[in-house]
Nucleic acid binder design. Structure first.
Length: 915
RNA sequence: GCGGAUAUGGUGUAAUUGGUAGCCACGUCAGACUUAGGAUCUGAUGCCGAGAGGCGUGGGGGUUCGAGUCCCUUUAUCCGCACCA
């Protein structure tokens, strides 16, 4: 019988579904293992061959773990709220729910063809009310809690209220937007609205008037991770800074815990580094400088610095153009200039500002501050090189030791006073954190590192400020002026936000017909008659922040996840997905999970123990070369002889870079009468690596590969392509090799004439050695996620075994290959007479006995060069062991000792004995 | 500018972690079988050289009996952060 993959795969996909082979239940008798893929956003384009890469890897791993005796949770679902469906709706009037449903159906169909072992009964969709009820629920919990810095934990807001009632802000150490001070009496005197306003300063989900990233084209605000280089990540539209009242999540409260937690995670160093960078912890000091205002009064201007040791070198100060006190600091003479500067910086988009970072600009306010250590009067400038959003929006400038301050001082002719020895101040500042202090009174002669520590103490002693840790991380803007997202369970009483009660959830998204913003620029929900709730909806990351918890207990309507389910499945053991979520989803879900952990709803503080980032699959485009002005196409090798135009050609009508001429003529009407200039009777196409996209005609659909070669071939080939974590272009050339292997594997169970042939004959030592070597290798490779070498190991194994029809070899081999090629394995398993699924077999274990060598390989060094690695029997005499390279006595000695595995010798001496 | 990663045949890659570089495939070449096929099988295939031999892991230097692997330096590519005080 031929290897009929179409029949086999259809049969088993149906069988698995009917038998419910992949259904998972909590089972205290077995250890759990949770393998998760980042669930997809079901886009209209469907899956291309790059999407399943990570899914295949996780499927192999979960099947492997299951065969090893674990109870494996391996679910899948859809991140179904999102911008593309909504934009499509605005253009076509098609309701996002409808297109999303269609896209999901298409995704499911594609996924099913690849033979994944998902437990589909646990599927979640973020856009369904039963699911987003729990997104809203978590939001309400965040609204009802604040973060206590002392205990590093979220606490009910009522406790804070009680504290305010008794003691005011005295003794409060809570994460907040701006530090407040009031007494119990002052609290009591506040109106209800004022009290609520005050509490918003502490709630973990809160409303605030802040600078936000506003994208006019998308008509919505965006979080920091949704903006890159001043453009929206989705769509690439310009983003501007705007002051708006928005919902935010106080993720900054968890900055330190998120930073510390990284150490305990098995994530790649580069990914951890991206998160550390994003959190951006820096240790420094808060210092207050006396600053004169234009009206003659003096205020304490607060700055943040990581280099307090350089205070003696401070010769001016700079505030951001958005600084609160700028107007008060501006003197009458400077008013016009300052206002013009503010106007000028406002006009520049974020993008221009980034592009012009090298250009120095700024303006003198007319006011002065006093350097608390030198006592000198120093001018205060405003410049947009100081960011309003970081630190306090004001800096002390040390031109001698900060390159930006240096450029600024040079431009405006300000003093440059060196306080650390080193560098050449004629050319540039000396920024290094090493050297001896000079011009710095009591710090003179001390090293920078020592001086920093002493200065901290001195600043605190003089009451000028204190040590402080600053984070780059910003609170996450949580509202979007869009329709297709979770509604906020909030109604308004005047300006007071009133949370819905838990039993009012879910607050369902009402159906609408027009998805654009209203004429007044309000979000689409403003069109809904009688909608008394918040008009914005939640952002994409809301629904994806806790989905891994929901899979544990997906149909529970009384809790996000039951305690029992959570305590059994705990957290994700292996998470596979793209690196693009490093600062978005992977930050938010850690925050979300830590919050739920504080409240006792989940038992692990980190959601994802081990994380593997699969590489991106790029496209491999093919080109044809049209001779200019004709409809003649010249093959790659001959195109230099003509003037040609390069044209993308659909990669699906090209095989191994050879163009299918008839398919090309049929591809588009203008090529119907194309003529070809061939080389060796073939038309060879050019190629290039580009992004996989429709416009490049390089999208390869997995369905197409499955149809031609089968799912098992696709699975193994995707793994064979190269290391999982590496980005690589998809190249269908080469898939034949894997397909051939599977056909060969099939033939190992059959005679040459195609009869089923399985013998009970005893395997030879050599065959056993091959088998156990392969078992060992495959197990190691799977554990190391080195799936490309494991596919190679199967091929080597097949090459070595040749026509081996022995059950004792082939049966374990079938289980061994089952995670990679489950359909063929299942079919052969059945043909071998088993009635159970190969998914429930026990994964073979390597018996090292079969690997023990009865001879050893001795690398021998001759004349300083490793010449050969010969195999000698253990019984070899020293004379036989090339006595000329080592002394006979030495050889004798190591043969008498413990049996060596490897002996490395150079003329006259043994340099290493591996035992 | 700072941080991280990568660099090996015509191509994708491998290398017991410091021990014969190029496993396994693709491609190419040759052959077998075949009423010719994009099927199957066998062999060859890093480069130079007729050969013996020489040269080879981006470049240069170093440590070592021995380096793709370790150290220094340099180049290129990719990624992350970026007036972060």
């Amino acid at each position: 019988m031929e290897y009929n993959f179409r029949e086999i795969e259809a049969k088993w996909q149906k069988e698995w579904k009917e038998r419910g082979v992949y259904r998972v239940k909590t089972d205290a008798s077995r250890p759990k293992f949770y393998v998760l893929d980042m669930f997809p956003y079901p886009s209209g384009a469907g899956l291309h061959v790059g999407h399943p890469l990570g899914y295949i890897a996780s499927d192999i791993y979960s099947r492997y773990k299951r065969l090893c005796g674990y109870n494996v949770l391996h679910p899948m679902g859809y991140d179904a709220f999102g911008l593309p469906a909504e934009q499509y709706a605005i253009q076509t009037g098609q309701h996002p729910a409808v297109t999303t449903e269609q896209n999901i159906a298409r995704y499911r169909e594609q996924l099913d063809k690849i033979g994944f072992s998902y437990d589909w009964e646990r599927e979640v969709r973020t856009c369904e009310p039963e699911y987003y009820k729990w997104t809203q629920w978590a939001f309400l919990k965040m609204f009802a809690h604040y973060y206590d810095n002392g205990t590093q934990k979220a606490r009910p807001i009522e406790e804070l209220v009680a504290h305010f009632e008794a003691h005011g802000t005295e003794g409060v150490d809570a994460a907040c937007t701006t530090p407040l001070t009031f007494t119990a009496a002052e609290w009591a005197a506040k109106s209800e609205a004022e009290k609520e306003q005050t509490l918003q300063n502490y709630r973990l989900a809160f409303r605030a008037d802040t600078m936000v990233n506003w994208c006019p084209k998308l008509g919505t605000v965006l979080a920091n991770d949704e903006v890159k280089d001043g453009l929206s990540v989705r769509g690439g539209y310009p983003v501007e800074q705007k002051r708006m009242k928005q919902w935010l999540l106080r993720v900054t409260a968890y900055a330190q815990r998120m930073l510390d937690g990284l150490d305990s995670l098995e994530w790649s160093e580069s990914l951890k580094e991206i998160q550390r960078n994003w959190i951006g912890r820096s240790e420094g000091a808060q210092v207050f400088f006396d600053a004169e205002m234009a009206d003659g009064s003096t205020r304490k201007l607060e700055i943040f610095t990581t280099r307090p040791d350089t205070i003696f070198g401070v010769t001016f100060m700079v505030v951001a153009p958005e600084h609160e006190w700028l107007a008060d600091m501006t003197t009458a003479e400077q008013r016009a200039a300052v206002e013009e500067y503010i106007e000028q910086t406002k006009k520049r988009s974020e993008r221009e500002r980034i592009a012009e970072t090298k250009r120095v600009s700024g303006v003198f306010t007319g006011s002065y501050a006093t350097n608390p250590f030198t006592g000198k009067r120093i001018p205060i400038y405003a410049s947009d090189y100081v960011l309003a959003g970081y630190g306090t929006g004001a800096i002390m400038a040390v031109p001698a030791h900060d390159s930006r301050d240096y450029a600024f001082a040079r431009h405006f002719g300000l003093d440059i006073v060196p306080v650390v020895e080193g560098g050449n101040l004629e050319e540039s500042s000396y920024d290094a954190k090493e050297g001896a202090l000079i011009n710095s009174d009591f710090l003179n002669g001390k090293d920078v590192k020592v001086a920093i520590v002493e200065m901290f103490a001195e600043v605190e002693r003089r009451g000028l400020g204190k040590r402080l840790v600053n984070y780059r991380l910003r609170d996450a803007i949580f509202s979007r002026q869009r329709y297709w997202g979770e509604p906020f369970p909030i109604r308004y009483d005047g300006d007071i936000a009133r949370p819905l009660a838990e039993d009012e959830l879910p607050l369902e998204l009402p159906p609408i017909k027009n998805f654009g913003p209203t004429e007044q620029g309000e979000p689409p929900l403003a069109r809904v008659e009688g909608w008394e709730y918040e008009l914005s909806t939640m952002p994409g990351f809301a629904g994806s922040s806790a989905y891994y918890l929901r899979y544990m207990d997906p149909h529970n309507d009384s809790a996000l996840v039951s305690k029992e389910a959570n305590e059994y499945w705990r957290n994700v053991d292996l998470y596979i997905g793209g690196i693009e979520h490093a600062t978005g989803h992977l930050m938010y879900s850690r925050f979300w999970n830590m919050f739920l952990y504080d409240l006792g709803y989940v038992c692990e503080s980190e959601p994802f123990k081990k994380l593997v980032n699969q590489g991106m699959i790029q496209g491999r485009s093919n080109f044809v070369y049209r001779v200019v002005g004709t409809n003649q196409f010249v093959s790659l090798g001959l195109r230099d002889q003509y003037q040609t135009q390069e044209i993308h050609v659909d990669v699906n009508i090209v095989k191994n870079d050879i163009l299918d001429l008839d398919a090309f003529r049929a591809w588009r009407p203008e090529f119907a009468d194309a003529e070809f200039i061939l080389e060796n009777g073939q038309y060879i196409c050019g190629w290039a690596v580009e992004k996989m996209s429709k416009s490049m005609f390089n999208v390869v659909n997995p369905d197409f590969i499955v149809e031609q070669y089968g799912a098992d071939t696709l699975r193994m080939y995707e793994m064979f392509l190269g290391p999982l974590e590496q980005s690589k272009p998809w190249d269908t050339n080469g898939i034949d090799g894997v397909h051939k292997f599977l056909k060969r594997f099939w033939r190992m169970f059959h005679t040459r004439t195609g009869e089923w042939a399985l013998s009970d004959e005893q395997p030879t030592d050599k065959e056993l050695k091959t088998l156990h070597k392969t078992i060992k290798k495959i197990r190691e490779d799977i554990e190391n996620f080195s799936f490309n070498t494991s596919v190679a190991a199967f091929m080597i194994c097949a090459n070595e075994l040749g026509e081996c029809h022995k059950r004792a070899i082939l049966e374990p081999l079938t289980i061994l290959i089952a995670p990679f090629a489950p359909h063929i394995a299942e079919q052969l398993w059945e043909m071998m007479g088993h009635t159970d699924s190969v998914c429930d077999a026990a994964y073979p274990v390597c018996n090292e006995e079969y690997l023990v060598e009865n001879s050893f390989e001795y690398p021998i060094m001759i004349n300083g060069k490793l010449r050969c690695k010969q195999v000698y029997p253990l019984s070899a005499t020293p004379a036989e062991l090339q006595a000329d390279v080592v002394t006979k006595e030495e050889v004798q000695r190591w043969l008498e000792g413990a049996t060596p595995k490897k002996i490395i010798v150079v003329p006259g001496k043994i340099i290493n004995i591996v035992k």
